[in-house]
Amino acid sequence: MDESELSRSGKVNPMTNTMDAVVSGQDSASAEPDIVPAADHVAFTYHTTAGDRPIPGDITFEIGRGEFVSLVGPSGIGKTTLLRVLSGLMRPTAGEVRLDGQRVTEPPRQLALVLQDYSRSLLPRYTIEKNVALPLSAAKVNRRDVRERTATALAAVGLAADVDKYPWQLSGGMQQRVAIARACLPAGDFGHGRTVCVRRRPDPVRPRGPGPAPPPRVRHDGPAGDARH
């Protein structure tokens, strides 16, 4: 997706309601590496009082420049979990997550995350303009830039007319677009951003046979602009 297409169609959200996404943008200052996010035998186990809950999978992949990758699997399989691990919010219990060759231990600057419960990630006290601007303001970007880039991002997701509304005054889909605009901003440009998006398997719930659950599949879909579901 290039920027012009974004602003033309307002189609930043080809995903359905239940979606998480990691947007990773190129850091314009740095050299251009070929591989950005990578997982190396990643596994994760939730430790709870009720016992351990391992997420199926021993996941290894690399995502190349311009690739649009979907993570597909039934509900409750561990897609959100994997994404939280990939984005540095949680440490993998085994294996390693890397970004540009660096081990990820905290959420890296070049990544942005739009989790499934995007509406809960918006601040009710702020207008959507301030919500989108928040990461930039916190990064001490100068005010004029913040305002301009915020306006561009909100226009790109078709919310130019709603900048002064509060998140709770918007529909679910609009809130999702606010979260996406916010995620795209710090990365800077939409054109070279990398997106990992997760959605529920589109087909209806299918009862699973006995035996261990299959791990989520990672699907490489080629250049982002061509990806359509």
Binding site: R84, A112, L113, S121
Partner: peptide
């Protein structure tokens, strides 16, 4: 809300 904490962390506020 944990979602807000995640947001604050992932955007390195």
């Amino acid at each position: 809300d944990p979602a807000l904490r995640d947001m604050a962390r992932s955007y390195r506020l």
